[in-house]
Each structure stands twice: as C-alpha cells, then as structure tokens.
C-alpha cells in the first residue's frame, strides 16, 4: 500500500472518530437543552434498543446466524439482576456483571445444541428457545412472581463527590446518561471487535462457512463466541432495564421484541455498527412519534416496516464486507 493511501485512510479514520465524538457530545447535551422527562424516557428506551441491536448485530449481522429469540437473553439478564437485587440486596453497579455473564453463558449453552442446524432451521430453534424462556418465567411463579412479574427491584444509587448520594429513583435524566454511556462503551467494544481477527473470521463465516472452515477458522467456536457476546450485551441491557423499571413482567420479553430488534439491525444495514444504532433510534422512537395517530399507531408502524424494506433493501448503512 502506498504512503498516500495510508494517509488517506488515516484521515478518513480521523473524520469518522470526529463524527462519533460530535454525535456523543450532542447526545450529552440533550438533557440540558431539552429537559423534558417523557422525551428523555423515550430516548432512554431507544438507547436500550440500540444496545440490543448492537448485540444482535454481532450474531445476525456479523456472523450471519439468524436469531429470532433474542429477547430471551434480555429477559435472562433482567431476571438475573432482579433476583440478585431482591434476594441478596445486590446493588446495580455489581449486579449487571453476573446478569451479563449469565446471559452470555446461556447464549453459549443454547448454541451448543442449536448450532447443529443452519439457516431457517436455526431461526426456528431460536424462536422456540425464546418462547420457552418466556413461558418458563411466566410459569415459575414461586421464583419469578409469574405473570404479575418481579416487583420491588431497587433503583440504582450512586455516590457523587461534592453532591453526595444520588438516588436514581424514577427520574429520567440519570437513566438516560447511564444508557448513553453504556451504549457508547458497547459500541466502541463492537467496533474494535468487528475489526479484530475475530470480527474478520465472523464475516468470513457469514460470507461462506465452508470456505472459512477450509481456511482453518474454528467455525463452531467462533459461532459460540458470537452467541455469547450477543447474549452478554443483551443481558447488560436487561439489567439496566430492570433497574430502570423496578418491575419486570414476562410480557416485556415477547417475540415482538425479538422481531423489533431484528428489524432494527436489518434497517440499519446488516453488520454495520452505526447502522444498528441508527436503526434502533429510528424504530425504537417511531411508535412514540406516531403517538399523535393514537389507535392507528401500530398500523402505520407495520406499513413503515414494509415501506422501509422496499425502499432501502440494503439498510441505511451498508455493513463492511
């Protein structure tokens, strides 16, 4: 590669970093410029969707494993943190870690049998897994509170120098910042991951599994790693969700959620990290923008999904090949 090419690549890279920084900075300013609690709440939800989309992007976008039960990992993370908090009094700042790890492990555990099948069959097995997890949380009433949900999960508290103890409570600003910071960290992690040796191997598996195996890529291990990473990110999002809501019910983790997150990844552009974030912010806040249409909201949402797929079949951003 010539020096000029390298220079150009470097400046492109710089520009990209600057764009990311600008985006992050503007996002930090939103609660100061526009401190509307409800809007911040919607944005926080959209950021949680962005986390989920980043995680699913690893599985579907980078590795090419179609997954239709992703909400199960979100549920496992949320319930793990909720149960730890209620029974052991585990604070959020510690509890997110086991929630994330446990969801990641369950991703690997699902992968060990499920990755024997491919393509549409894998999609169906994961769909079945998602339903089994949700029904199990509904039926295991003695532990999870059944359909009424898990009540009384404590809101996080943070000690800030000079300001003293800050209880997150039900205000929307702290959760917004928490979700924003976590999303930025996870996005950075995903960018590094997708450019690493592992990320290249994942893309190789997505493009042609047989050829990847012939080149000596340990296909099964890498697929399991993708499932584990995706699961862990969803588990982290689940812990934040549980801490924010204080109450979690099995209904929050239904098939529709798995599908929505998948739609975000596809809309953003498969395998593209900024695509996953933008797709999540658009689709995650769209139902709120459509609130003016009242009862016609979800009807229009369905039409919007169809229209987007028709107008931009490759997604908003094309993923790296």
């Amino acid at each position: 590669m010539r020096i000029a090419d390298l220079k150009q690549r470097h400046s492109e890279f710089r520009q990209r970093i600057i764009r990311w920084e600008m985006g992050g900075f503007l996002a930090l300013l939103i609660p100061i410029v526009h401190p509307h609690p409800y809007h911040l709440d919607v944005l926080t939800t959209a950021l949680l969707y962005a986390l989920l989309a980043l995680g699913l992007n690893v599985i579907v976008g980078l590795t090419g494993l179609l997954h239709l039960g992703y909400a199960a990992f979100f549920a496992i993370g949320a319930y793990t943190y909720g149960l730890l908090n209620i029974h052991l009094g585990c604070p959020f700042w510690i509890g997110w870690l086991p929630a994330s790890i446990f969801a990641g492990i369950s991703g690997v555990c699902l992968g060990i049998p499920a990755l024997r099948v491919r393509g549409d069959y894998l999609a169906i097995v994961t769909l079945g897994f998602g339903e089994i997890v949700r029904i199990a949380f509904t039926n295991l009433e003695q532990w999870t509170g059944g359909p009424n949900g898990l009540l009384g999960i404590a809101h996080p508290r943070l000690w800030i120098p000079t300001a003293g103890m800050l209880d997150f409570g039900v205000s929307s600003k702290p959760y917004y910042y928490l979700a924003l910071i976590v999303t930025v960290i996870v996005a950075g992690f995903c960018v590094r991951l997708s450019r690493s040796r592992v990320g290249r191997a994942w893309r190789a598996i997505r493009e042609d599994e047989m050829a990847a195996a012939c080149m000596g890529i340990p296909v099964l291990n890498l697929k399991l790693l993708a499932q584990g990473c995706g699961g862990a990110i969803a588990g982290l999002a689940g812990a934040i969700f549980a801490a924010k809501q204080g109450v979690i019910t099995p209904d929050s983790f239904d098939f529709i959620l798995s599908v929505m997150v998948l739609a975000m990844v596809v809309l953003g552009g498969m395998g593209s990290i900024r695509g996953a974030i933008v797709g999540a912010l658009v689709l995650g806040s769209l139902p709120e923008w459509l609130r003016g249409f009242d009862r016609y909201r979800m009807l229009i949402f369905g039409l919007a999904m169809i229209g987007m797929m028709r107008l931009r079949p490759e997604g908003i951003f094309r993923g790296r090949r």
């Binding site: 596809v266 009807l299 949402f301 369905g302």
Partner: peptide, 13 residues
C-alpha cells in the same frame, strides 16, 4: 431477511 421483516410488518398491520 428483508422478506422476513416485510412479513412481520404485514403481520403488525
């Protein structure tokens, strides 16, 4: 996958 998402959108609709 686009057809799958379209089908899901149609189902919502």
């Amino acid at each position: 996958l686009n057809a799958l998402i379209t089908a899901i959108g149609m189902s919502f609709f």
